[in-house]
Design a protein around this nucleic acid. Sequence first.
DNA 1: GGGGTTGTTATGCAAGTGTATAAATAGCTC
DNA 2: GAGCTATTTATACACTTGCATAACAACCCC
Lengths: 216, 216
Amino acid sequence: MTDGPSRRKFRREGEERRRQDLIEATLDCVAERGLQGATVRAIALRAGVTAGLIRHYFPGKEELLQAAYAAIVGRMTEQAKAALAMEGAGPRRRLAAFVAANLGPPVVDARVFSLWAGFIGRASSDPALATAHREGYLGFRDEVEALVGEVLRAEGRAAGKAELRRHAIAINAIIDGLWIEGCLAGDIFEPGELVEIAIATVEALLGLNLREEEKT
Amino acid sequence: MTDGPSRRKFRREGEERRRQDLIEATLDCVAERGLQGATVRAIALRAGVTAGLIRHYFPGKEELLQAAYAAIVGRMTEQAKAALAMEGAGPRRRLAAFVAANLGPPVVDARVFSLWAGFIGRASSDPALATAHREGYLGFRDEVEALVGEVLRAEGRAAGKAELRRHAIAINAIIDGLWIEGCLAGDIFEPGELVEIAIATVEALLGLNLREEEKT
DNA sequence: GGGGTTGTTATGCAAGTGTATAAATAGCTC
DNA sequence: GAGCTATTTATACACTTGCATAACAACCCC
């Protein structure tokens, strides 16, 4: 009748599966309790394992957080890249698709934003993180710049380097700004409103219509 | 010769002065080590006092952080309000001044950003914080909307409610987006470049020139 | 200049953190 | 089914955190 030292039952999962589960659990914790609330114990509980297991798959908590961050950044850029790769579509439609991709799910998401804010908030104090952001930002901006260049070229309009740079910075800012609001208070906007506003602003900025296809 | 129990020398400061010092120390800590690094001990050390004193001026650490956040938000809106209050200037110049005020020092500042990110990152998990942001955002946007309304009215252009709303959202996003980049990587922009880009984008959006005064 | 007020220090504590380590057991191979 | 391997659990440790408390001393008042 004496219940012996009952040890918890468990199942062995594949390595990749466990890593993914832990990353997902981390994202959930960050979303629900903020970065501070993402402790190893909370993450493990959410993943259905015990805390020690984290160290079996990651060198430390920091690496798990970085993996989670990388996972989210990956998902976001994946969307954007898909829009860029739209073969067969003209530059204008590709630009519009790119903007739209960055302002819809899964990019616009409170969970994503929490993690982003948590990480980026330390960029001022963490040089490595600051560099990472800068490279990511410049890479993103370069893509926008190239895209705008294509659009204008297709339009037969000369575009100076400085002008292109300014346009890319502005478009990037519009996307970022709307992204933030969508993440933080998506419910005060109509569905698709952010995308529409972004595209309309880009249209005004470039002085052309992105919705109708260019004449061949 | 036995050095007795040497107790630290100290000076009694005025209440308001101490509070301000503690708040400033908090901002410094957040800037240098991130929100996580802003512990009561680190803050006290920076302020030149011992940790216990914090609890003499604030109910707890949380309240100190909120005071620091409020202080920074206050400084930011102060700048913006000053631009709005420019009497004698036409709507267009006031709008330009408003945009510029939000994209120059002391609003664009890494320290400010760290604190902002730290707080806003918890907005998803903290309903009170989410509400605070929403109200601040909507208040800000209302001001932009009113300003844009004035500008267009002075231009003799009719502006529908929906159009006004979209413009305000867009302008707000531009300011936010550029603000972030200025805070995070101000050194990759020319001085005044962000302001110029913002104003140029707003000009394109509204289809008018903000730099030259309106004809009376 | 002596006393009282209270701003300030010093010390300690309970809770929570990430991490290290050893024991246990699930699932594979033969 | 026995034996191995390494995934997983359980436990403990060193450290930090915010907070409580009591002793102390700087400043004000008379």
